[in-house]
Design a protein around this nucleic acid. Sequence first.
RNA 1: GUCGCAAUAGCUCAGCUGGAUAGAGCAACGGUCUUCUAAACCGUAGGUCGAGGGUUCGAAUCUCUCUUGCGACACCA
Length: 563
Amino acid sequence: MDYKQQVAAALSDAVDGALSTEDIYNKIERPKDSKMGDYAFPAFVLAKVLKKAPQQIATDLIEKIDQSKFEKIQAVGPYVNFFLDKAIFSSDVLSQVIKAGASYGDNDSGEGGNVPIDLSSPNIAKPISMGHLRSTVIGNSISEILKKNGYNPIKDNHLGDWGTQFGKLIVAYKKWGVEEDVKKDPITNLVKYYVRFHKEDVDQPELDDEAREWFKKLEDGDKEATRLWTWFREESLKSFNAIYEKLGVEFDTFNGEAFYNDKMQEGIDWLKKMGLLKESQGAQVVDLEKYNLNPALILKSDGASLYITRDIATAIYRDKTYKPAMNLYVVGSEQTYYFQQLKAVLLEMGLPSAKELHHIPFGLITVNGKKLSTRSGRIILLDEVLDDSINMAKKQISEKNPDLPNKDEVAKQVGVGAIIFGDLKNERTNSIDFNLEDQLRFEGETGPYVQYSHARAESILRKAGDTEINADNTIMTDPEAWDTIKTLADFPATVIEAKEEFEPSDIAKYAIRLAKTFNKYYAHSKILEEDDEKSARLALVKSVSVVLKESLRLLGVQAPDQM
RNA sequence: GUCGCAAUAGCUCAGCUGGAUAGAGCAACGGUCUUCUAAACCGUAGGUCGAGGGUUCGAAUCUCUCUUGCGACACCA
């Protein structure tokens, strides 16, 4: 039931058509403080039409409004404040949550539409850093959020397994590489060669020519180049998968750039057929002047492909394979301009899904204000941060709850949860200057705080045993209970909002808000006390537990029952 | 240089389509564990919302100018 609609209807009747119900609906707001009611209507908007002072209008309105459906309605200054009938509202919300369980907040607005999502996308032969964390966990969360909104997301780890850097890597390996070292610790050693390459090519520019040659060989299917490439790729994937497992992220496809290597011609032919390709300084470009963008370079002057060539192939492939409702790319905000160009090219080509291509940018992770870079060795390894966090969680458990069963498993859930939640709680596009201390904080508005709140709720439910949980008769007198119930009621709208903005932080902030209001309730009420309201209180605790767990799930964070 | 994004408490950030005294967390100071997990709760202190103009009954929010920071600007991804 839409209670805001009920408020709008009541107002609409009282103003005699001075304002449409829809206009009224849009003007209704939520007071910051519960003491000022559950919904409020600012009378300013009527001042002009009625030529009266807003305070007067507010006072007049409460005389005319049918108050029977509300607990009370008050005029406070220029506002009309509505107080909902708590018993009806509470029973309504709690019985909905308990009946629906984890599917509370589900909607089917996505109509089952396919949504390929580009996420994570680490580069072969390079370590997974904190930078990749963002794409991985944001993409993973958006995938869960889309599912909850009725879409069918397809998570594609668009591996950086192609490109000129492989020419460089092959050259470096052939010059300085040791097979045993790579087998022992692939990423570390491959990176070592790569970094050395970039040191030496400053004085020996001919190295870059060699690298270009080797990449061309790779593109042409040369045997040795292919063998080395395959090997580097396999070793790298092994080490990536260990990290993905720790994070609890799974993918549907691993269609990296190499996958599209033999699919680029179709896009090029398409562009040619439509007369979109033009020669410019020896290279092939698409003019994008009508989009107010610089020309997009499609083929290098030596005929080799570029990032965009493969992305065009990707878009065509996805279009054909999935008939996507949306096509998403979770990639850093530094590539915003590039994605504008890509979308413009695809629009020019008339690709059906081009209109629904969305770049989902996120802010940069820096260290002391400087960009991370494998070449310069300025890098924070995700795996190390995760392990630090897990160890921190272990320490906390041995201090606070030494008798906890399966400590290691819980430490992993809490430690990893802290890192994921920490990344997702702020707006995507904010840039982050990395600070390990901040990452390992488990107090205040953090993942562990939300997990802890959930664990407390579960603990109460365990203690309650098989006491009846009854949501039908929920007369609860504590004001904290009322705030919690109202927050529970906000969940479905939050799920929609998060989908529309592609913004996991909406869910994370919601989870904090719910945890906070529940903790307040917990601190002020004796839930297991034997009285008439006990089963209603348990209904509230059960509902909180369900919705907290579901919120965390949407973020890709586990919710242990004890911690 | 051009374009884009940002600027809110000591630090990290919220602030919904403009609305009631600008809010959290951390850090600081003080209080609450014989009773459901103190990873919690309660309180104190802390602000010219980068600067200046404009629109409006009303601006942190919309608009313009400026300052500062970050990013992007064709043969990398």
